[in-house]
């Protein structure tokens, strides 16, 4: 019996995932062997360091041996890095495959389950690690996208839309960028009016990578800055004040949301994925209002 197209594609996807997972399993198996080999060099370096410290002098011999050890360690650490990067890339790929499969299912979920899944995806987003000495790229943590950047189809964005008679920033999915304007779709399936055509300035692409505070501390919004953060258990963004940046790549920002009366809510935690910069024009607008009062 001949297979249908969808069955063929499903089988292909499954076999792709299987192939990726087999590769991942292999890597995970080989990790300890590789790490043990590298530990020997690390021990050598540490022992030589101790000897140097004990002597109180760094003689040419120990200097030479240290340089030698360091060179070996550098080579090995790069290999280790490659292996771990590869494993993470595989995981990311597997996730993308699965996401394509369950995309339609996700939207048909009950709103609470859907919101929970939205939060989970924020932590599943890959972490950016520098290969050499480069700075974090755009859309890594708080790094703004380049002015020429346009969100790809299927990317999540924060979009300023008019719903139920009021303007609000919502989580939407970019559909297309055409004639200098974005076509976006509200991710909340309950809303009746879900499709919008918006100007570029009213769309803010959400971060695509998490930043590690140890590796790239510059990729975070500093404390006491205003941001647009997604209010927990909703799909709307509101103005918030950053009180603490994440301590690890898994953590979120500690923020205080501002209400209509310029009062702040209690401290809430919002993941890196759902915090974007606050539009500068609005800050000026609000400040002007404050001055008038």
């Amino acid at each position: 019996m001949a297979l249908t197209k969808s069955q063929i594609s499903a089988a292909k996807e499954y076999s792709d995932e299987q192939t990726l997972l087999i590769e991942l399993f292999k890597i995970l198996y080989n990790v300890p062997t590789m790490v043990t080999c590298n530990e020997a060099v690390i021990d050598n370096i540490n022992n030589t360091q101790e000897l140097v410290i004990q002597k109180g002098m760094i003689d040419p011999e120990s200097q030479k041996s240290l340089i030698g050890f360091y060179e070996v360690a550098e080579k090995e650490v790069k290999e280790e890095e490659e292996v771990f990067r590869k494993a993470l890339a595989i995981i990311n790929e597997v996730r993308n495959l699965r996401h394509q499969k369950i995309k339609s299912l996700l939207q048909s979920q009950r709103s609470s389950t859907f919101l929970k899944l939205l939060q989970v995806t924020a932590v599943r987003m890959p972490v950016w690690y520098p290969k050499n000495d480069e700075r974090p790229p755009p859309l890594c943590g708080a790094i703004e996208p380049l002015p020429s950047y346009t969100a790809k189809s299927g990317d999540l964005v924060a979009a300023l839309v008019k719903q139920s008679g009021e303007e609000r920033w919502i989580v939407a999915e970019a559909v297309e960028f055409k004639n200098g304007k974005y076509e976006v779709e509200d991710i909340d399936v309950k809303e009746t009016n879900r499709n919008f055509t918006l100007e570029k300035k009213n769309v803010k692409p959400l971060p695509l990578m998490r930043a590690d505070p140890i590796i790239s501390p510059d990729a975070f919004f500093p404390c006491n800055t205003f941001v647009l953060a997604m209010y927990p258990q909703t799909t709307c963004f509101f103005k918030a004040l950053v009180k603490a940046s994440p301590k690890t790549s898994y953590d979120g920002y500690e923020v205080l949301f501002e209400d209509d009366f310029n009062q702040y809510t209690i401290m809430m935690i919002v993941s890196q994925r759902f915090v974007v910069s606050f539009p500068s024009s609005e800050i000026i607008h609000k400040d002007d209002l404050k001055i008038e009062y």
């Binding site: 360690a73 650490v77 771990f84 990067r85 494993a87 993470l88 690690y129 140890i214």
Partner: peptide, 16 residues
């Protein structure tokens, strides 16, 4: 698996 590998990679990066 992802979080474990990430934490490992972080320490590797720092060592590097």
């Amino acid at each position: 698996t992802q979080w474990f590998l990430e934490s490992m990679l972080s320490s590797i990066m720092f060592r590097k």
